[in-house]
């Protein structure tokens, strides 16, 4: 893991900077592009970590989301975001962010977590060792998501179905019928 750590840190810094730009910029289009940059950097980070499946999915979803978001953004007349700062909100979020960092340092710095690159493989090593003979599937990731945990994938497909159906339902032109139509029905 040592040989790729510098690249990962560079990507991490890039992603954090991108996220901050996305939050702080006034222009909506710049914000969308910054978010997309973070997504693409994440995709590259997955590649460095040796997870091509997730990298591909992240990449294609990022492309699609970028198209939809940019199309949504350029339709707006005014893409500049009005700035109004709520001091109380900023202070509270900073306090909570600090608390989270404190907890994070406590956990990642010491006794809590396994070392980076040496995960607890108690359950997953069985997938690695018996995945091929048990499922005859050469791609172990697919074997896990569509055979060992196919039920979860059905849930994921339902999540997608639900969100698309919900979006279609909310994009109706009129929500309620007119009174005379109700009486006729």
């Amino acid at each position: 893991m040592e040989n790729i750590t510098p690249q990962l840190y560079a990507l991490l810094v890039f992603m954090i900077v991108g996220s901050v730009v996305a939050i702080e910029t006034r222009n909506l289009l710049s914000a969308v592009i910054s978010v997309a940059a973070v997504g693409f950097a994440l995709s590259v980070a997955f590649l460095f970590l040796g997870a091509p499946d997730i990298a591909i999915t992240q990449l294609v979803v990022e492309v699609l989301v970028l198209i939809i978001l940019i199309r949504g953004t350029i339709l707006l007349d005014n893409t500049a975001v009005e700035s109004h700062r709520d001091t109380l909100a900023v202070v509270t979020s900073l306090i909570f962010f600090g608390l989270l960092l404190g907890f994070g340092a406590m956990i990642f710095g010491g006794r809590g977590f396994p070392e980076f690159g040496e995960p607890v493989m108690r359950v997953s090593k069985v997938y690695v060792h018996t995945g091929l003979p048990a499922t005859y599937c050469a791609n172990i990731v697919t074997a896990v998501i569509l055979d060992f945990r196919a039920y979860d994938t059905m849930g994921e497909a339902s999540v997608l179905f639900t969100s698309i159906l919900g979006a279609m339902a909310l994009l109706r032109r009129d929500g309620k019928r007119k009174e005379e139509e109700v009486v006729a029905a």
Partner: peptide
């Protein structure tokens, strides 16, 4: 080829959707 090489139904489906879009 989702079960042989990286990829699968979700990624492939998004790519096909991108073509129509």
């Amino acid at each position: 080829y989702g079960h042989l090489t990286p990829g699968g139904g979700f990624a492939g489906g998004v790519i096909i959707a991108c073509a129509f879009i």
